[in-house]
């Protein structure tokens, strides 16, 4: 389970796009089981579950229709698709809303639909780009346990996030990126040991961000309280 960290503009989303085959790398290759993913994108994507950063869904489709569309693209059998969709909708507390258009879903509901879409075909690799945004506390707890269980099955998880606390607790490996360059890579413990910092937040600040966050925060407060 790889936690992928980096400040805005460091290249996280570009990496995710290349890993999903949405973007072709200008140099190098993305290898899956030793083969370039571009050689057979369709079968690679069949084994991939992807949760994009923004919950962009067609608002005119209902939750069930959207999942059926994804299931069909994944070439799932109709019976399997129907049963998985129903079960997962139930477990993600969306069954009652399955015939409601996605346009009226809250952010958290849309995020849960994306998670179902990523998980429904039992993928071998999960690519998660900020998967927790908008989720409530219960859903976050379920999700953290879910991906740990998923990882325990021997499946790969690529976890891209800004929520350091989750990455620290959930991921076994860590990669920190700055301006397109890898500045730290290894197990979370290794990276922590090498940098000599106790928490991931401090490591991230040490390696990733140039800005003095305390100073910036104080400056913002000064502007806010300044007399008009």
């Amino acid at each position: 389970m790889l936690g992928y960290l980096g400040p805005n503009g460091s290249g996280k989303s570009t990496t995710v796009k290349m890993l999903t085959g949405l973007l072709q790398p200008t140099r190098g290759q993305v290898l899956f089981e030793g083969r370039d993913i571009q050689s057979d994108l369709v079968s690679y994507r069949k084994r991939l579950g992807y949760v994009p950063e923004a919950a962009n869904l067609y608002p005119l489709l209902t939750g069930q229709e959207y999942l059926e569309m994804v299931g069909t693209f994944r070439a799932m059998s109709l019976a399997q698709m129907k049963s998985k969709i129903s079960s997962l909708l139930e477990l993600f507390s969306l069954f009652a809303h399955r015939h409601v258009s996605l346009g009226s879903y809250s952010k958290g509901m849309r995020q849960r639909i994306l998670l179902i879409a990523a998980l429904m075909d039992n993928p071998d690799v999960l690519i998660l780009d900020e998967p927790l945004s908008g989720l409530d506390v219960t859903s976050v707890l379920i999700f953290k346990n879910l991906i740990q269980a998923f990882s325990a099955l021997g499946k790969g998880v690529f976890y891209c996030s800004h929520i350091l606390e989750v990455v620290e607790k959930v991921c076994s490996q860590l990669l920190i990126l700055r301006s397109g360059h890898v500045i730290a890579y290894g197990s979370t413990e290794d990276v922590r040991r090498r940098i000599g910092q106790s928490s991931l937040e401090r490591i991230f600040l040490e390696l990733g961000e140039d800005a003095d966050v305390v100073k910036v925060a104080n400056e913002i407060v000064d502007v806010v309280v300044a007399p008009s």
Binding site: L22, V42, N56, Y58, P59, M69, R74
Partner: peptide, 15 residues
Amino acid sequence: PSDLSANWIFKLWIE
């Protein structure tokens, strides 16, 4: 167009 940002699903799955 209809919500262009959502077309990633087609980009991902249609040859």
